[in-house]
Amino acid sequence: MATNKIAFDLVSPEKLLLSARADMVTVPGTEGYMGVMAGHSPLVSTLRAGMIDVAVDGKDDRYFIKGGFAEINPEKITVLAEEAVPMTELDIAVLDQRIRDAQEDEIAAKTDAERLRAAQLVDDLKLVRAAF
């Protein structure tokens, strides 16, 4: 059933992390997590910090991303992540440090927009933390 798979590319500015054919890819869209399968209608969406879940042949690969964009068309989904790390390489201590940094940013923010963005990041990171 190869036709039911969707091509998936995960790229960060430093490298191409993954290029695979997946059954379903779950990405953290700005307006909520969404599962993308083959035949999805064309969509460009911004992503928040969170986890990407790639289902290939019943196995799940998970990646942590720190925001980015997804471009989706019926055959292909491309995720441009600002930063992407496989969950297996993600260190909980590093994540905690990130949360603290984001919290400091929130306090130090000068404009409302900045504060909102930092607060959003804190929430998103805490969600990831909880999923450990």
């Binding site: 700005t30 969509l43 969406s45 964009f69 068309n73």
Partner: peptide
């Protein structure tokens, strides 16, 4: 151009994408 849906909307996405593009 393919007909894309945009989430949130085109302007918001472009406004986030363009500065990022400069960095990249």
């Amino acid at each position: 151009a393919p007909f894309y849906d945009y989430e949130p909307d085109e302007d918001t996405i472009l406004q986030a994408l363009l500065p990022q593009n400069i960095s990249v």
